[in-house]
Every structure is written in structure tokens, then in C-alpha cells.
Design a protein around this nucleic acid. Sequence first.
DNA 1: CCTACCGATCGGTAGG
DNA 2: CCTACCGATCGGTAGG
Lengths: 222, 222
Amino acid sequence: MLTKIARACYDVNMDENNITEQPRRRSDGEQTHQTILDRAVKLASIEGVNQITLGRLAQATGVSKSGVYAHFKSKERLQMEIIEAAGEIYEREVIEPGLQAPEGLPRLIKLYESFLSYVEREIFPGGCFFAGLISEFDAQSGPVHEAVIAGHREWEGLVVSLIQDAQQRGEIDSGVEPAFLVFQLDAVKDHANFLYTLYRDPAWIERGRQAISRIVTQVSAT
Amino acid sequence: MLTKIARACYDVNMDENNITEQPRRRSDGEQTHQTILDRAVKLASIEGVNQITLGRLAQATGVSKSGVYAHFKSKERLQMEIIEAAGEIYEREVIEPGLQAPEGLPRLIKLYESFLSYVEREIFPGGCFFAGLISEFDAQSGPVHEAVIAGHREWEGLVVSLIQDAQQRGEIDSGVEPAFLVFQLDAVKDHANFLYTLYRDPAWIERGRQAISRIVTQVSAT
DNA sequence: CCTACCGATCGGTAGG
DNA sequence: CCTACCGATCGGTAGG
């Protein structure tokens, strides 16, 4: 039966865009899959990825435990899909709006403002998903740990390139070490997320904005 | 049997300092209790307090599962004792060395240096215990969440009072808002902990030191 | 996607 | 501090 559904999904897949060997579900199943994943991402942002269990996810969605399991085929795969789904949301809510600003310093500033806004709007009920994820897996080896490091390196690389752009345009002092500036900016953004999530007081986001703009002012070319 | 041990411990207790209704164990049991707790604190700093189970703690210490349970009487109590024990370590490794410096600005600086040193020396194998704890419970209501908030407020209060001391001595500009300065300093210390724990590269601690001293320089009275 | 299971482990209890 | 349990839940499987 599973095979039949899998094959049907595979056929549907062919008509769409995705020709991988990973079987997918047809439209109804696809929707259920997404519904479960949405719930899982929200739960994981509050309690941590390791606290998500098939049973509780089943209860939260009204699907049977084995129904949930059938969608993900293992707990590891479920965890990975949760992280992927969260990544898409982060991309949509932080990266894309940030990159819409004009190149150079405005883009750098907009990126951090997008982050603060995304925290303030509580896109994830438990605060920034990835701040929580890093904290959960920073000291634990395994595939998630590696994925977390890759994600952090990607973010750092993006910000460094924005800083270098701004330096080439003469908007940021050329004597500033990009990696150090990223450290300063990220410290503020993560701390604002941290305290907003703990206290749910927008004053912390405002402090984050102030601290970011203070740092930017200091490194701005004269 | 439990009652007998409990009563024996109670008697011992009377001879010491502590006359609460909470029964304690006699010296052997006391030692086992501490051994279990030490392991639990280390494990919890890596995996999170919620990941500690009686079974795994039993396995890690060689005590039977019910033996572990007998020492703590509930998982909640175990969690609370873990947090208390971590708090004592934090007090010893960060607060006390910090407060040994001369009053005013040197004491403020020393407090943050003590923190960075405590991270660098890996007092907890999974990074600063309380950074992890806040991250784990920031979005979850319950007694641990409340304890975490109380702990954060205590730290913030301490730092604010150090800043005000330094302001009264004319070492920090009186126009600086203490709460905002704490925000800036804590952002850096937590971020250094965060990245050191993820990468285990002392360069992140060094960046933290640089960022701290830069902030201090900026707010220093002219 | 379901019911009906499996062995392992969970927090906790009884009794010593 | 131990053995020997309890019901509940875990991730996962069989079969439809």
C-alpha cells in the first residue's frame, strides 16, 4: 500500500518540478505532510528539536502515530525536515527582505533589522529557531551539529561579503576587520532575540536596534 | 529502611548547620549524592536539563536507577538540584573572582573577564550552563522558567550596581544608561560563549575580550 | 493513511 | 542503597 502511494506520488512528482528518488505523497498527503511539519517546527522552536516525539506530534495534529511516522520514515528524517522547513522560513523572513535593500551599507543594516523584526513578529513562537538549535546542539556531535556549523558559516560568509561591499563603496572604514564586525553585530542580534524570547518585552528589540546602529555609526567611514 | 537512613541523616544534620525538614544522607550517601550530581551537571550542560533521565544517570554512575531516584525523590527535584549545583559553580568561578577586584570599573571589567575565562577553561563541558539553561527554558513556562528569570534579574542587578559604582567614582560617563550598557556587555559575553562552545576555538574568547574592552573604552569618562 | 503490535525506556513505587 | 515491579510512552514494524 505504501508502495502504491509512493508510486503515485512519484508519478505526480514527475509532472511537477522535482525528479529525485525520494518518494512524495499526492496532493492530500502533501498537505498533511506540511501540516504536521508546521506544527513540528513551532513545537521545536519552543521545546527543542530533541523534545519532538512522534506520539505528541500525532496527538497535536490528529493523525495517528504511525501515520506521522509514515510521513517521515524515521525520527532523524523528521528532525532534518523540521530544520529544513525552518530554514525556508528564515530565508523568507530574514534573508530575502534583507537583500532587497540597496547594495552596500543599507543592505547590511536592513539584514539585521529584518532579523530583529522577525523576532519581534514572533515568526517562531519560541524565538529564533536557529539560535535555539545552535544552543541545543553546540556541544553534541552528530549530523545536526554539522548542519548547524554549516548554517552559521553561511550566515557569517554572507555578512562578511556585505561588509566588504560596503568597504569597497567607502561606507565602512577599510581598517575594520569584517569578521570582528560580524561578531559584534551578531552578539547584539542574538542577545536581543534571547531576551525578547525570555521576557516578551519589545524594549529588548529596541535596545538591539540602538546597539546595532551604534556599532554601525562607529565603523562608518568618515 | 529509607526512614532509618533518613533519620540518621537528620541526626547528622542537627550536628551540622542545616536544620530543615529535608532529610539528608550520612557521609557515604552524601558522597554518592554529590557524585551523581556532578555527573548530572556535566551531562546537562551538554545535552540540556530535560535530556537527563534517571536511567542514563544510573548507568553513568554505576548506581541502580532506583538508587538514583532515592537520592532525589522526583525528577523535578533532580533538575532543581542540578541547577543549584551549577549555580554554586558559577558563583565560585565567575562571581567571586569578579568581586575580588577593586571596586568601580576594575571590578566590572574583572567580572566579564572571569566569565570569559570560565568559558575558556571549560568549567562545564557544554559551555556556560546558564546560557544553555535560559535557551532551553526561555519559551517554556514552569518553575525552571521562573528560576531562570530570577537568575537573570540577579545578574543584571549586580552588573547595574557595579556600573553605578563606577559612575559615582567618575570612571564611567554619567550619561550612560546602566541597563543599556549591561545589554551591550552581556551580548558580547554570551556570544563569545556561544561561538566558543560551537567551535572550541579560543579566538572567539579573544574577540569577546576585544569587544568588551572596546565598549568599556567608549563609556569611560573623559 | 489506519490498527495492532514489538522491545526498550521512561518516571515512579513497594518492600527490604 | 538494592531487586522487582507498575503503567505510559518511546521509535519503529507488519500488514492493510
